[in-house]
Design a protein around this nucleic acid. Structure first.
Lengths: 135, 135
DNA sequence: TTACAAATCGTAATGATTACGATAAAATAA
DNA sequence: TTATTTTATCGTAATCATTACGATTTGTAA
């Protein structure tokens, strides 16, 4: 998802356009990386000195709720990245820098059979390690 | 892993046998379920009134470190269960009760090819939903 | 049984996240 | 443009899981 699509989505859902929101979206759209609330705060602080935690977390959750961001937990902290809106896939995630690489093999197809009596509502398949740059 | 194996493992590694440790191990060995630190505390409290957080968390981490427990994160909380020591597999995890069901299809085999330049050190494949009893 | 290391207690500190009343800013209508 | 309303943000305190630590107790091995 790009910046413009995200802004339009927000507007369509009745949320207001603010400079902070635009900058938050730019921050995430610039890279295929999982980042923390603190990473975002560090990025915002120079331009918006005194920005509140409330603003950071409220927007992260809002963006996740409306589908602008996706989230995962890495070592006890929530991490966020721009939502991938093309075909279903999974990610390799670098433990150091959070960069992601798409994995286009999804194991679920062959598994639903095994779980007939369970009500599946989501699954997580992630691979962790170091990307070439961080090795 | 059963209670006896776990106690022997602890002893072999030079850790002391205490009533609390035995009870913690019993707690986990009784079910195929992910439980939180708080679940464990609730279980221990009646028998050991005033048991310290330190004891709960220290032992959870120790047991994870020596391979008695395995761990995952569900809604921002660490969950623990008895380590499965037989063949590599994954789990379906019930979001309500934490019960697990083994999944014997591992997607990794077919994926390493795609990630030649990455240093893979672990992967997580979990399916979430409701077990038959919780539906 | 003694002595020492390890385990536990009681409680405070930490760190991420959430919450909230007061204020400011964006959108909408007049 | 101005007024009005609604949402966003600030500043800061509260919460919740987890970690840390000095003092005390308990296993264990000599």
């Amino acid at each position: 998802m790009n910046v413009q699509e995200a802004l339009t989505l927000l507007k369509n859902k009745g949320y207001k356009h603010t400079g902070k929101r635009e900058d938050i979206i730019s921050f995430f759209s610039s890279e295929n990386r999982y980042r923390t609330a603190k990473d975002l705060l560090n990025y915002m602080e120079p331009n918006y000195q005194g920005i509140s935690f409330d603003t950071i977390y409220r927007n992260l959750h809002l963006f996740h709720e409306v589908g602008i961001l996706e989230t995962t937990e890495l070592n006890g902290e929530k991490h966020f990245r721009m939502k991938c809106d093309h075909q279903h896939h999974h990610h390799f995630i670098c433990k150091d820098c959070g960069i992601t690489k798409e994995i286009h093999k999804c194991p679920m197809d062959e598994i639903e059979e095994e779980l007939k009596s369970f009500a599946i509502d989501s699954h997580k398949f992630e691979i962790y390690g170091l990307c070439p740059a961080c090795q």
